[in-house]
Design a protein around this nucleic acid. Structure first.
Lengths: 197, 197
DNA sequence: ACATAATGTCTAGCGCTGCTAGGGTGATGT
DNA sequence: ACATCACCCTAGCAGCGCTAGACATTATGT
């Protein structure tokens, strides 16, 4: 491949990322309903068809944003877990990190977990960053806990419920800390078996 | 008011309900993205502007569907609770009824709890049916439990997380019973105080 | 009974959306 | 220098939520 072709490919990759970043910023600033192909094209200073030469459509752009988000969420959860050596507090820290992520970047969170998507969850084609993020929850529970996956799944679901209802104004933004404390306390409890953590 | 005017008002109220029902059925059959004002008008056999003489816009129709849903959900939760006299099983029954409601009528559930809305939750203007539905969760906990509202809120959030992630394909549809059992067991546990139920 | 007024509904159209066909421009390789 | 090719833009389609204005139809007053 010629140097010229290489340069073009490099520029193309940059533009690819530029589109993703622009969509994400626009969504975070004005919500996803403001992210139209026209406004996005204007923002990246190209015409609309250029978007379609990079992505199969608006849905594919949204998907790319979501996958970028999975990577960042996983990294954040991992950091929270590793910074907290004691297992009980690790679960608490990871859950808090999750809610902070959702609250700080609501549009990104929506792309990942609320808006319709064709990203496969808990499936053979699940993107590695998503698997890794889920694995952080699993790692909060003892490896001899035979139902770790179930624990992690329900924990994640409960956090998502809190994040989603809070973001859409269906529960008050105040009191997140109390909800988090209560949830973690109950999940870490031992009503029906050995200590999970 | 003349009899003629009364008849017209009656017909108008019927048409009002017809629009709500048509929107709901169309959403349940093909999803909310298929509910356009044109298709809805065609379905009720009137022109588009008629919709706008009944509702302030598409959002108001969605809101009307959601409020209808709150009433039905509340009734269902109440039935589940009253049919189960023992408190621990009452919580379980109410939670199961909630998940069944969400799974059986996913579009209605979305209108109530997922799609953007201007319905006020936990607020002075909260629609009574919504307050009543939430009160069913609160009633599952002992009246001497000073944190009943918090318990109910987190329980509801966790259920919503399970329902929403399941409906959008982000967790597998199988295993809902295990998730429900685990959640209720943990919520009903007593890690930090007196028995909540 | 007739003209007037008021009510209700429809047709047509605005500015927007996601998406795409086709042409034209400029760089590339011979 | 020329032919080729890759690239990008203009223009347009069908459908969206929503609304202005024309048109009947119905009720009212004389």
């Amino acid at each position: 491949m010629s140097a010229i072709a290489k340069r073009r490919e490099r520029e193309r990759a940059q533009r690819h990322q530029l589109i993703i970043t622009a969509a994400r910023e626009l969504a975070e600033a004005e919500g996803w309903e403001a992210v139209t192909t026209r406004r996005l094209a204007e923002r990246v200073e190209y015409s609309q068809p250029v978007l379609y030469s990079h992505f199969n459509g608006k849905g594919a752009i949204l998907r790319a944003v979501a996958i970028e988000g999975f990577g960042e969420l996983g990294a954040r959860l991992r950091r929270a877990r590793l910074a907290t050596p004691e297992p009980p507090e690790a679960l608490h820290a990871v859950c808090r990190a999750y809610l902070e992520f959702a609250a700080e970047q609501p549009a990104l969170y929506q792309a990942m977990f609320v808006l319709p998507t064709d990203v496969k969850f808990a499936h053979a084609e699940t993107p590695p960053p998503l698997r890794a993020a889920f694995a952080e929850f699993v790692s909060c529970f003892r490896s001899d806990n035979l139902r770790r996956e179930l624990f992690a799944e329900v924990t994640w679901s409960a956090l998502h419920g809190i994040a989603a209802l809070s973001d859409s104004g269906r529960i008050p933004p105040d009191g997140q800390a109390e909800r988090l404390d209560f949830l973690v306390t109950q999940i870490a409890g031992t009503p029906g078996g050995p200590a999970p953590l």
